[in-house]
Design a protein around this nucleic acid. Structure first.
Lengths: 210, 210
DNA sequence: TTCACAATGTTAATTTTTTCACAAAAAAAC
DNA sequence: GTTTTTTTGTGAAAAAATTAACATTGTGAA
């Protein structure tokens, strides 16, 4: 297997989630079009993605749910698991922690950081909250590889710099402020305002057509 | 102007945000490569997007910040403004409200819904919180066009159905549970778990290369 | 004035992503 | 036992998105 497209990676993660649910309900096999319906995509797309990861199903029986879950795991998970930190324990940071709570064994949120003295030293939803001043120390101690930025926009840049200095390898930036990182740090930015504006645009468009 | 690609719409929203900041600092013109640097894309990409919306800059002076802000607004905003509701006033819902607080005059979060009796009847960050039972009534009364789903995953489907029944035209689904909507409702789904898994994958990949 | 530079605007090429179309074959139906 | 149906796997085509290449031209410097 050579290069997996970004989009394929995203879909694999989603396939797995759907498959895990199937698995719980005791379903042993699944067709490409069933996966496709769940994800609002086409069956060909699913089959092509699975082709790319070299998984082959059974004709007329579909794909073995358990096998596929394991294969996807072997591709996207790290064997040893990856430690993650949340920078900014506000509403968004806490929302993320709750989302994750116990879901992914290979991705663990092991630390949160904040500037609010009321939060520092406490545990929130099972995640200990530390002071920003201790960020570098904790990141190194706990071998944290990924930082999720959920601070207010005007602290995004300094927080990102802290993370980079501490040696994280990936940053997921949820602030609306674009940040810069060195080449060896993988950066993913997501902007909720943009997404809502996009939805609004297409709603407007649809109204206009009518 | 005919069809604007989805990706272009997203970038236009982001350009505008960057431009608004420039405008505040008193900058009157900006070059394509300056915009590009902020957004981590290429200058050609910026120029192409602007070409698509028919905006033309001044040679050697770049683009007029104010004009461009207004033009992008005329494309992606609705004249009358659009009313938005948040379904699920948990951490994520509240995070979104704070994000938006007063930022976009054309996109207003005018109602929140929840099942928790302690929240119902109160105002949170300026947004009144209603009971789910009143959803259809309030959506119609307030002429709400877009619903943002921030409920727990196992309530996603029923909440989506409520929204559709109430007549919203767009749904932004932040739960990890894919939903189905009729064809005339624009649906955008975003999954934080997938995004984090993707970051983890590319971090793993980068480690392996070394 | 003339030259060099720096920026835009756009056609064409490339790359990436998705879809079409169909062969192959297991299972079911008859 | 033959035919039909259903589903996978994939080469080829199409569509979408990005990048390259370059002509054009306003501006400032010499």
């Amino acid at each position: 297997m050579k290069h997996l497209p970004h989009k394929t990676i995203e879909r694999l993660s989603q396939y797995r989630r759907a498959l895990l649910i199937c698995h719980e309900t005791g379903k042993s096999h699944i067709y490409s079009h069933e996966i496709a319906n769940i994800q609002h995509i086409t069956a060909v797309q699913v089959r092509r993605d699975l082709m790319l990861i070299g998984y082959t199903g059974t004709l007329r029986k579909g794909y073995n749910v358990k096998e596929l879950i394991d294969l996807i795991g072997s591709i996207i998970d790290s064997d040893e698991g990856i430690h993650v930190a949340i920078i900014g324990m506000g509403n968004l940071g806490r929302a993320l922690i709750n989302y994750f709570d116990g879901k992914r064994s290979k991705l663990n949120i092991v630390a949160g950081f904040d500037t609010n003295p009321d939060k520092i030293g406490n545990t929130m939803s099972g995640v200990p909250c530390y002071a920003n001043e201790d960020l570098e120390k904790i990141i190194r101690e706990k071998d944290i590889k990924i930082g999720i930025l959920t601070v207010p926009a005007d602290h995004a840049i300094e927080s990102a710099e802290l993370l980079v200095k501490a040696g994280v390898k990936g940053i997921l930036n949820y602030t609306p402020k674009p940040i810069n990182v060195p080449n060896d740090v993988y950066l993913e930015e997501y902007d909720m305002i943009t997404t809502l504006e996009k939805v609004a645009f297409f709603v407007k468009l649809q109204e206009m057509v009518k």
